[in-house]
């Protein structure tokens, strides 16, 4: 799991070659509560770092999910349509949101590693 990088908005990203997988952190799913719906982007959409890429809804809240880095959406997790609770059960695993073909993998360097992120959320409480 050490390959995960995190944003201040609680997205994670994991790079495999030139394609990266994006989801929301365990902390984020816990804050949201039971996820009931995920609105995913269409394949081929260009997203920019910090721009809206998806929406995640729980019973009482809805949040934008922002793209951690620039890229193009090459895959989305269709399983979330039938089973949005995957986001709660396995936020950094089967509950992933989308895969991005990255414009510039170096952008990941600007994000937090897991230790830094855990430190960051500890400061939020």
């Amino acid at each position: 799991m050490s390959a995960l990088r995190f944003t201040k908005d609680h997205e994670w990203i994991r790079l495999d070659g030139s394609v990266a997988t994006v989801g929301i952190s365990d902390y984020a799913q816990e804050q949201l509560g039971d996820v009931v719906f995920v609105e995913l982007p269409e394949i081929g959409r260009k997203v920019t770092a910090g721009g809206e890429a998806a929406v995640v809804e729980s019973v009482k809240a809805a949040s934008e999910v922002y793209a951690p880095v620039d890229g193009e959406v090459v895959a989305v997790n269709d399983k979330l349509g039938d089973d949005p609770a995957l986001v709660n059960r396995a936020p950094t695993g089967e509950g992933w949101f989308m895969k991005l073909a990255l414009a510039d993998p170096k952008q990941l360097d600007g994000l937090m590693d897991e230790a830094a992120y855990l430190n960051y959320i500890a400061g939020l409480a």
Partner: peptide, 12 residues
């Protein structure tokens, strides 16, 4: 489906 509504989504 109240997350579509103004009291949660506000300007969205």
């Amino acid at each position: 489906l109240s997350t579509r509504e103004q009291h949660i989504r506000r300007e969205k």
